Simulated assay, not measured.
Amino acid sequence: MSASAQARRLQGMGAYLHALDARLMDNVPPRWAIGLPSAVRELAWFGIKEARACLFAGLFFAAVFAMPRAGLFGIPRYDLLLVYALVVQLWMLRAQLETRDEFRAICLFHAVGFCLEVFKTAMGSWSYPDAAYTKLFGVPLFSGFMYASVGSYIIQAWRLFDLRIRHHPPYWMAVAAALAIYLNFFTHHWLGDYRWYIAALVLGLYARTSVLFRPLDHVRKMPLLLAFVLIGFFLWLAENISTFYGIWSYPNQMGAWSRVHWGKWSSWSLLVIMTFTIVAGLKHVKASIHVPPE
């Protein structure tokens, strides 16, 4: 396929996704679902919206799982994954599936995640076993996109589900908690692991916070803390699959694969809170967040 044909195909995919987004957000039950019970219809539409919100994450991890460990055409798989992730991300920007502000936030997620990866691999928490030309300090550059995919999901879900946040804590408190979460990933190697103290702080901050979302034609409500925990669980599942395919490995997985420790679920949930805080700083997102007066 020529470059011009590929460009037209990508442009057509972008137009299709814009049409799909408009259909998903018009909150009118589709014709095929009219005869279904209301709960089933809403659950189906919820699943479609979730799948659409996972566009970047889905495309990225599909490549992670499909890419041969030996790479292709003599190019290591880590390098191919970097090129693939860049192409997908630039396509989403060019197709206006992400705004420039959102793209800058995605870049921030990548940088924050990559710095964490460099430190953790240096400390021996995990390692990337395969060779690559695009490794820096022992970490392949594509790894930051795993963190960026979480941010992309939250950004897309916010729009598709018309999210509204009620009783959000003051921004300075949320930012302080996010910084404490991030710093603890580093300092626990010397000062001790304070994640449960930070979790208790977060529990107090977000105890009254709820998220309003619209799967189809009804607005639903759930505690924001529950959303953090659920997203963290699915990230923990994705981590298990990734380590099974040897993308990276923990020390106890060197000889043979074993399940990632349950404690990583809490780490991912805390990381989701940090990511959420960054997304909440976007201009068009702040309008949907209610912060009670102090």
Results as ranks from 00 to 15, higher is better:
residue 137 F to Y: 10
residue 124 G to P: 06
residue 271 L to R: 04
residue 67 M to L: 15
residue 208 R to T: 10
residue 246 G to Q: 08
residue 4 S to W: 12
residue 274 M to E: 10
residue 73 F to V: 08
residue 203 L to Q: 11
residue 205 L to I: 06
residue 57 A to F: 14
residue 48 I to M: 11
residue 13 M to V: 04
residue 75 I to V: 15
residue 55 L to I: 11
residue 60 F to L: 13
residue 167 H to Y: 07
residue 239 E to F: 05
residue 184 N to Q: 03
residue 112 V to M: 11
residue 225 L to E: 02
residue 82 L to I: 04
residue 61 F to D: 00
residue 170 P to V: 11
residue 110 H to Q: 10
residue 14 G to I: 03
residue 16 Y to M: 14
residue 13 M to C: 00
residue 219 V to Q: 03
residue 169 P to V: 05
residue 162 D to P: 02
residue 137 F to W: 14
residue 162 D to F: 03
residue 164 R to K: 13
residue 175 V to C: 09
residue 7 A to Q: 14
residue 114 F to I: 00
residue 226 L to R: 12
residue 174 A to I: 06
residue 34 I to P: 00
residue 154 I to Y: 01
residue 263 G to Q: 12
residue 79 D to C: 05
residue 101 D to M: 04
residue 56 F to G: 03
residue 183 L to N: 09
residue 289 I to Q: 06
residue 140 P to L: 06
residue 145 F to T: 01
residue 35 G to I: 08
residue 90 L to C: 13
residue 47 G to F: 07
residue 212 L to V: 08
residue 91 W to G: 00
residue 196 W to L: 15
residue 194 Y to G: 03
residue 288 S to K: 13
residue 118 V to L: 13
residue 111 A to P: 01
residue 213 F to R: 02
residue 277 T to S: 12
residue 109 F to V: 03
residue 73 F to A: 15
residue 112 V to D: 02
residue 147 Y to T: 08
residue 2 S to W: 07
residue 124 G to I: 04
residue 261 H to A: 14
residue 200 A to W: 07
residue 278 I to H: 12
residue 207 A to Y: 14
residue 14 G to T: 07
residue 90 L to I: 13
residue 152 S to G: 12
residue 10 L to P: 00
residue 250 Y to W: 07
residue 250 Y to T: 05
residue 16 Y to N: 01
residue 294 E to L: 11
residue 74 G to H: 08
residue 214 R to A: 06
residue 143 S to R: 01
residue 3 A to Y: 09
residue 252 N to F: 15
residue 245 Y to R: 12
residue 273 I to L: 14
residue 290 H to R: 09
residue 179 L to W: 09
residue 89 Q to F: 10
residue 106 I to C: 09
residue 237 L to I: 15
residue 227 A to W: 07
